[in-house]
Design a protein around this nucleic acid. Structure first.
Length: 198
DNA sequence: CACCCGATTATCT
DNA sequence: GATAATCGGGTGT
């Protein structure tokens, strides 16, 4: 399937976050393909987003957010969990990323379950830390270009999501900038986080 | 170098 | 619902 080009990410992060729903995250690991459909995202911007990691300005940790669009920004959360962002922004003076919060397994769920250590098909890839664990994404993958066919992590054209199935809300776990409704998810999808029941 | 704090999750009550 | 686990990075001394 077609890899999304750099141009796809060259827009404001909330626009890209919405467009990423239904796209496929493809991980090539040990010559085996792991594929998940993106069902939940969050946008973070700069310089007008106090909740974003880029808000403090360029540092070693967040440098990927200031680099070329279409690359990976990966960081540790709470010292325990790894989170995966895709870099996107409209202009060179800006920075930002789109956090992948949940995917629906399309291919290779057995290996995802192995990496995760759980068998429940929902729990395997629901939640940003869990997605990284299931796809074996680590800090070593920071800065990787997601638009190159040679990369072992790419985003490819998936399915189109009906406009009325795209929902948005305030971001999860964020106290600042609550007015920004920059969390996007597919209505009714079982892998979207914050479901009372698994 | 000490201190503080999270873009989270699993496991309790 | 509440909380512990756990650590890298930013900040200030």
């Amino acid at each position: 399937m077609k890899i999304l080009a750099k141009q796809f990410y060259n827009h404001a992060t909330d626009v890209v976050a919405k467009k990423l729903l239904g796209k496929f995250l493809v991980r090539n690991i040990h010559d085996q393909l792991l594929i998940g459909m993106i069902v939940e995202t969050e946008a973070y911007g700069y310089p007008d987003d106090p909740a974003g990691h880029a808000y403090i300005g360029l540092t070693k940790r967040n440098s990927a957010l200031f680099g070329p669009v279409g690359r990976a920004y990966i960081y540790k959360s709470y010292g325990i969990h790894t989170c995966f962002d895709i870099v996107g922004y409209k202009q060179s003076a800006q920075a930002g990323g789109i956090l992948i919060r949940a995917v629906e397994p399309i291919q290779g769920i057995e290996l995802m379950q192995k990496f995760r250590g759980v068998t429940n098909e929902i729990q395997v890839t629901s939640g940003p830390g869990n997605v990284c664990k299931a796809f074996h994404i680590t800090l070593h993958d920071n800065h990787k270009d997601l638009t190159e066919s040679t990369s072992d992590i790419t985003i490819v054209q998936g399915i189109s999501i009906k406009k009325d199935a795209v929902m948005n809300s305030a971001r999860v776990g964020i106290s600042k900038a609550r007015h920004l409704l920059w969390r996007f998810y597919i209505k009714g999808n079982k892998w979207v986080t914050n479901h009372p029941k698994y």
